[in-house]
Simulated assay, not measured.
Amino acid sequence: MSSLSAKDDCLAWAARDPSGVLSPYSFSRRSLFLFAVGSDDYADLLSTRNLHGNSKYPLVPGHEIAGIVKEVGSNVHRFKVGDHVGVGTYVNSCRSCACCNDGQEINCAKGPVFTFNSSNTDGSITQGGYSSYIVAHERYCFRIPDNYPLASAAPLLCAGITVYAPMVHHKMNQPGKSLGVIGLGGLGHMAVKFGKAFGLNVTIFSTSVSKEEEALSVLGANRFVVSSDQEQMKALAKSFDFIIDTASGDHRFGPYMSLLKTAGVLALVGFPREVKFSPASLNLGNKTISGSLVGGTKVTQEMIDFCTAHKIYPSIEVKSQFSVQMKLL
């Protein structure tokens, strides 16, 4: 195949400093794989504004990417030119540890290589999907059925899998069980959609009263609770099999632990600054609290196929759309 990395032919939008302002940027990519359609989210903003303190500029964000294969390497066997594919939050791993061998690359013993602002094995710094094309190894690409919209597929690769992975891991897919969802943003609304598809009785907890109509009428949740209302919270004591916490803002955990039934599970996928709760709220009732990031390649493909089969689509607003070609190794 042709070597597109011979010149600065990749056009992108990059942050040049912690202001986070994106401006046009040209750079070279290695030869490999091409895509289309990008989506911005909170994680991108954290990096462009250097809120983690580790941003490497110029920085091209974008880690929820969906598009069409334009070129493949000679060793690519899973995809062909014209296939609809996606790339999520990571693009490489050691490929030899127990986690990688089990399709859990996100938990790679040597650490995954993230889609942007991460050091790759060849020493280069990865650049994300806000660009005219992206190069990726076929192992870290996901097949998107032709009848699933590319713009809707992109958010599945971070927001979707972030909640789907812990839900299936903790068996939150048992019809008739009760699920609480803390927060109704990008992650929370996908947890509600999955919960309803699994046949769960879903309750949304939010501090925003204004979100009640969306929760009940649009997403079809069974109940909406204002989490700051102590009476509403007390009335639901010991009534949930599962709770998935998508809130990244600081909040109290004790009140939610009290809502779990015996052997109930609270899965944390947000990033509050700290997690505090009484050991008694965990030990009494044999409850579990766990953490999760995103899923490995195996469960991510499973999620995409599940969304296609059940016609589950993220709520999106298309600001602009441009062709981002992909090359596969």
Rank of each mutant, 00 (worst) to 15 (best):
C97E: 02
I204H: 04
Q321Y: 10
Y256W: 04
V225L: 03
N107V: 07
I304P: 04
E64V: 07
S93M: 07
E212K: 12
S23H: 10
G180P: 05
D122E: 08
N101Y: 00
G20V: 06
L284R: 09
F306L: 13
S47I: 11
C10L: 11
S323T: 14
V37F: 15
L157C: 03
G195Y: 07
G82H: 07
L282Q: 14
N222Y: 04
D229H: 03
K70A: 10
K234P: 00
T48Q: 12
E71Y: 05
L268G: 01
M326K: 14
Q321K: 14
C99E: 14
D241R: 04
D8V: 14
L268Y: 02
G185P: 13
N107D: 09
A6I: 13
C94S: 07
N120A: 13
Q174T: 15
S118L: 07
K319E: 09
D41I: 12
A14N: 07
G195Q: 09
V265R: 10
G254Y: 03
I144Y: 01
F253L: 05
I106V: 13
G199F: 10
D250E: 09
V318P: 05
P61M: 01
I65T: 04
Q104C: 08
I316V: 13
G295P: 06
V69Q: 02
V91W: 05
A247G: 03
Y313P: 02
D8L: 10
S2T: 11
L284M: 14
A267N: 04
E302L: 08
T300G: 15
Y140F: 14
F35M: 12
A309G: 10
F142Q: 07
F198D: 01
K177G: 08
L216D: 06
C307Y: 07
K211E: 10
L150H: 01
V181W: 11
T121Q: 09
T308K: 15
Y133H: 11
V181T: 09
T203A: 10
S315H: 15
N117F: 00
G295S: 12
G185V: 12
E214A: 11
E317D: 15
P279G: 14
L150C: 01
V209E: 11
I289V: 15
F27D: 01
L184T: 09
Q230I: 04
Y90R: 03
F271T: 14
L282M: 15
A280H: 11
D305L: 10
L32G: 15
V269N: 01
R273H: 12
N92Y: 04
E105W: 09
T246A: 10
D241Y: 04
V324D: 01
H52W: 14
N107Q: 09
T262W: 14
A191T: 08
G186Y: 00
G128W: 00
P61N: 05
M257W: 02
P18W: 06
K110S: 11
L32F: 13
R78Y: 08
V60K: 00
M172H: 06
Q232N: 02
L260Y: 02
G199C: 09
R30A: 15
V324L: 06
D245P: 00
N120R: 04
L200S: 03
F33M: 12
G53V: 14
Y133D: 06
D8A: 13
A12D: 00
V202P: 05
N173L: 15
S227Q: 03
V265I: 12
A98I: 02
R223P: 02
V72R: 13
